[in-house]
Amino acid sequence: NLFRIFGDLSHLASIGILLHTVRSTQSIDGISFKTQALYALVFMTRYLDLFTWHWVSLYNFLMKVFFLASSVYIVVLLQQFRTKNPIAYKEMVLQDTFKIHFLLLGSLVAGLCFHHRFTLLEILWSFSVWLESVAILPQLFMLSKSGRAQSLTVHYIFALGLYRFLYIFNWIWRYVSEARVDKIAVVAGIVQTAMYSDFFYIYYKKVIRGNAGNLP
């Protein structure tokens, strides 16, 4: 359905915006390394079914490979700034102070409590879904602390939030047309969209209405 396709495209766009801006401006100002590392972990633990020969479709396969590869690539790209631009890297590390072990531990507990079957793959899948729902927090925390945002981070977070927002409509669509619903994905998806709601409001005020407001 259209919600899902546009959701996936929005997700692709967010990665494209991030990669393009970092590569063309050679700047990592305002980007949270922790959030990017969490996303790499999310895809690594979710797409393990690539190795179980569980075939869904060519689209599904290519997207999984792309998300996996691009998330790892972004982490490597950010790490390169450690030697390429130590001052910018150090500044990022100093601002990127969110305690992610709470997110990791919380997602692990949620994965152990809510899963479809008690197998390693299913628990890791559930862990990845919960972790994705909170992985943006270090980035939002960094944004709120610095009080300024590069157009990069603003558009990046907007595209990422839009992706999750569209997925909610996708689930409503599927519930109606296919009579299928994945409770874990839906609850985590709503949590994730809620994380962005404050940001969306700021984005609306700042970007759409053109006011220079404060950040979330």
């Binding site: 869904v56 999984k64 997925y167 599927r174 519930y175 299928r180 619903v181």
Partner: peptide, 10 residues
């Protein structure tokens, strides 16, 4: 309605 995994999503 079927409540269960929808694993064809990303």
């Amino acid at each position: 309605h079927v409540i269960g995994p929808v694993k064809d999503e990303l």
